[in-house]
Amino acid sequence: KRYRAVYDYSAADEDEVSFQDGDTIVNVQQIDDGWMYGTVERTGDTGMLPANYVEAI
């Protein structure tokens, strides 16, 4: 699945990823209600991200 960031996010922990509004997130997997795991296409960084900061595309 592919998602697009709708807000900027700065990683708060080493297992999270930072991204900017408009970034595409690929290979996304749902972890639980609030978190997903995926790769930021622009940077190649992979990690956890907050589900409410992205939307499906």
Rank of each mutant, 00 (worst) to 15 (best):
N52Q: 13
T43D: 02
Y7M: 15
A5M: 00
A5K: 02
D13C: 15
G38C: 04
A11T: 05
Y3T: 00
I31Y: 09
A56S: 10
T39F: 04
Y7G: 11
Q20S: 10
S10W: 13
D8H: 10
Q20V: 14
P50Y: 05
G38W: 01
L49S: 00
T43A: 02
W35T: 05
E14W: 11
A56R: 10
G47M: 02
V40I: 08
T39W: 04
E55K: 12
N27T: 06
D8F: 08
S10F: 13
D15K: 14
Y3Q: 01
V6I: 15
G34R: 14
D8L: 07
V40E: 02
V6G: 04
M36P: 00
M36V: 10
T39K: 08
A5V: 05
D32M: 13
G38K: 01
T43Q: 01
L49Y: 11
G22W: 04
Y7W: 12
M48G: 04
T46V: 09
V17N: 00
Y3S: 00
N52H: 13
P50D: 04
I57R: 05
G34F: 15
G44H: 05
F19L: 06
F19A: 01
W35C: 06
I57Y: 10
T46K: 09
A12L: 13
R42C: 05
M36S: 04
D21H: 15
S10T: 14
Y9E: 00
A12I: 12
M36K: 04
Y53E: 03
P50S: 05
G47T: 01
L49P: 01
A51W: 06
M48H: 08
G34Y: 15
G47V: 01
V40D: 01
V40W: 01
Q20F: 13
A5G: 05
R42V: 04
A5P: 00
A56T: 09
G44T: 04
E41G: 04
A5Q: 01
A11D: 02
Q29K: 13
G38A: 05
D23R: 03
D33T: 10
T46M: 09
D15A: 13
D33Y: 09
I31K: 09
M36Q: 03
V6A: 06
N52T: 11
A51E: 07
V40A: 02
A12F: 09
P50W: 05
D23W: 07
E16N: 05
V17D: 00
S18T: 08
V17Q: 00
G47F: 03
G38E: 03
D8A: 14
E16S: 07
T43N: 05
G44N: 07
S10D: 12
D21C: 15
D21E: 15
R42Y: 04
T24F: 14
Q29N: 09
I25M: 06
N27R: 09
A56Y: 12
M36H: 05
G44S: 05
D23Y: 03
S18V: 02
D23T: 00
E16F: 08
Q20G: 06
V6H: 07
V26S: 08
Q29M: 13
D32Y: 12
A11H: 04
G44F: 04
G22H: 04
G44A: 05
V54P: 00
R4K: 09
T46D: 04
P50I: 04
V40T: 01
T46A: 09
R2Q: 09
E41M: 10
T43W: 02
D21P: 11
D23V: 03
A56K: 10
Y7I: 09
D33C: 13
E14C: 13
